[in-house]
Structures are given as structure tokens and as C-alpha cells.
């Protein structure tokens, strides 16, 4: 089975995950959400560059994301750091990645208490993009910030009014200690401690972390190991507002 989440959870399991996000450390880890080899293969497939010809190679502003926006590739902050952005409402370029993204969103919807397929349909008030991200650069690649905490945004994906319900997900496609070390995804817990996933929390390729979006987070200090093409690779799942109207 591709995804362990194909079976709906018992409500008490969802309740425990929800408590972990909102009243526990601020995150919940779903181990082996997909098989580790599927996760790593997915990363290698896209980060080898063999399918870049299918992508619009250039930055598209969050505020300009529209119904007909194709999949696109962002190279930021450096040329080697890629974000490959697929829209969930478009015909998939990669069926595996698309199905995985759909299952991840179902998990988030269960935890946030939303309808099961919310944000996967173009008519929903928020719609999802899934971004395969690879960081190879050292230093700070995603500055420390918190979402939906009324921080100003140069290019917002929608309203950033305070919304403690909101969660983000990170599906890991590479392994700390094998592909990268030192830094990576750093997250401030609900009791205001910083943890680095992979180093302080047992997380590796195929594991899904659902975390509270209003807590501070960053990506920094990645050191690539073994000339890995993956470095720190993951999928994140931003939601966009107002796409239907554009």
C-alpha cells in the first residue's frame, strides 16, 4: 500500500494527534507515512533535473497563482536550492506525488476538523499547492518566521490574520545523517524550545510531520553529506486564497 493513511483513522487517534499539535509539543509525527524508498525515489526523480523540461522555469508570485498556473520551478535562495511547485487541481505530472499529496491533505483536514477533501478542489476557499523542496546551501535558506500570526508578508498567499487552527505538513524525502546533517528544519515547540527534526526528533524519509503553523520555524545550516543529490529534501503543502478568482 502506498500510503498508510488510506484507511481512515479512528477518531481517538485523530484526537491524540490533534492534542499533540495544539496542546502538546506543537507537532505530530506520522512514521512511515509512505515507504522510505518511495520517498527517496520521488526526491531523486525530481531533483535529478530529468523532468525540468516539464516545468515553467521561473518564479511565480504567490499573489499571481491562478487557475491555469502550470507546475513551476523556483531556484531560491541559490541556484542549487529548488522548489518544484505543483497545483493539486491541475492534471498531475507525477501520479505518485499527486496521490501522496492528496493523502497528506486528508490527514491535515482530519486534524484541523475540516471536510476530508478540503483544499483539494478549486472551488474551496483555500486550495493546495505541493512543493518538492531541496536545500543544498548552507546558511539560512528559510528565515525564522511564524505564519498566521499577523506578521506582514511581501507576497502573501492570502490573509495572515491570527489563526491558531492552521497547520503545515512536511513530508521528509531524505535522511539526516545520510544526506545532510548539522541543521535542517528547525521548529519552536509550544513551550518555546527549538528542535531540529531528524536530529532531535526521530524523523526520516517517508515520515510526515504535521506542525502548528503559528509557531516559529526556519530552514538553516544544512550540510550536504556524501554528495547527495537530495540534501535536505521534503514536500511542504501551502494553501492559497483567492485562486478561483484569478
Amino acid at each position: 500500500m502506498l500510503c498508510a493513511a488510506l484507511n481512515l483513522y479512528e477518531s481517538n487517534e485523530v484526537a491524540e494527534m490533534r492534542k499533540s499539535v495544539y496542546a502538546g509539543p506543537g507537532y505530530t509525527v506520522f512514521k512511515s507515512f509512505i515507504a522510505p524508498d518511495i520517498a527517496r525515489d520521488l526526491g531523486k526523480r525530481w531533483f535529478s533535473g530529468m523532468y525540468n523540461h516539464l516545468l515553467h522555469d521561473g518564479f511565480i508570485k504567490n499573489q499571481e497563482l491562478a487557475k491555469d498556473t502550470p507546475s513551476f520551478l523556483i531556484r531560491r535562495p541559490n541556484e542549487c536550492d529548488w522548489s518544484i511547485c505543483h497545483q493539486i487541481w491541475q492534471a498531475p505530472l507525477d501520479e505518485t506525488a499527486h496521490n501522496i499529496a492528496m493523502e497528506c491533505q486528508r490527514m491535515r483536514n482530519l486534524i484541523e476538523g475540516r471536510p476530508l477533501y478540503y483544499a483539494t478542489r478549486i472551488h474551496d476557499s483555500l486550495v493546495m499547492q505541493y512543493r518538492l523542496c531541496r536545500t543544498l546551501s548552507p546558511g539560512v535558506t528559510v528565515k525564522p518566521h511564524a505564519d498566521f500570526m499577523e506578521e506582514s508578508r511581501h507576497d502573501p498567499s492570502g490573509s495572515h490574520a491570527f489563526d491558531p487552527r492552521r497547520t503545515q505538513m512536511t513530508l521528509f524525502l531524505s535522511d539526516y545523517g545520510t544526506d545532510y546533517d548539522e541543521g535542517g528544519f528547525k521548529f519552536m515547540t509550544n513551550d518555546e524550545r527549538y528542535v531540529t527534526f531528524g536530529r532531535d526528533v526521530d524523523v526520516g524519509a517517508g515520515d510526515l510531520v504535521i506542525w502548528k503553523y503559528t509557531n516559529k520555524h526556519e530552514v538553516s545550516d544544512v550540510r550536504v553529506l556524501n554528495d547527495s543529490v537530495l540534501g535536505f529534501s521534503r514536500i511542504v503543502f501551502p494553501l492559497f486564497e483567492g485562486v478561483m478568482a484569478r
Binding site: 484526537a15 495544539y22 496542546a23 486534524i111 484541523e112 476538523g113 491570527f162 489563526d163 491558531p164 487552527r165
Partner: peptide, 15 residues
């Protein structure tokens, strides 16, 4: 916090 502790989503309404 009370919402979260009791298993509710601390959402827009509570805010």
C-alpha cells in the same frame, strides 16, 4: 489552551 486540552481545534471562532 482549554480548547486544545479538551480535543477541540482552537480555531477562528475561539479567537
Amino acid at each position: 489552551d482549554a480548547h486544545a486540552k479538551d480535543g477541540l481545534v482552537p480555531g477562528w471562532y475561539a479567537v
